[in-house]
């Protein structure tokens, strides 16, 4: 089977799963960042500003 260069693939639109591979990678990155930033605490400055003992 002859190898087809990548540019030919791209020009002919012969990579039908590219978009969904990108979409799944984007979803993975988003999920990681959401879990990372969602569990982040509040800044200590605001706590010390409003803390009333």
């Amino acid at each position: 089977m002859a190898r087809i260069p990548l540019t030919a693939h791209l020009r002919a639109g012969n990579a039908p799963e590219t978009f969904f591979a990108v979409a799944l990678c984007l979803f993975g990155c988003l999920a990681y960042l959401a879990a990372r930033f969602g569990a982040e605490g509040f800044s200590n400055e605001s706590v010390s500003k409003y803390w009333i003992s």
């Binding site: 984007l26 979803f27 999920a31 930033f37 969602g38």
Partner: peptide
């Protein structure tokens, strides 16, 4: 993707 990320953020 956005709504799922938002749900995961809420769970976190």
């Amino acid at each position: 993707s956005g709504t799922s990320a938002l749900a995961l953020r809420a769970f976190a």
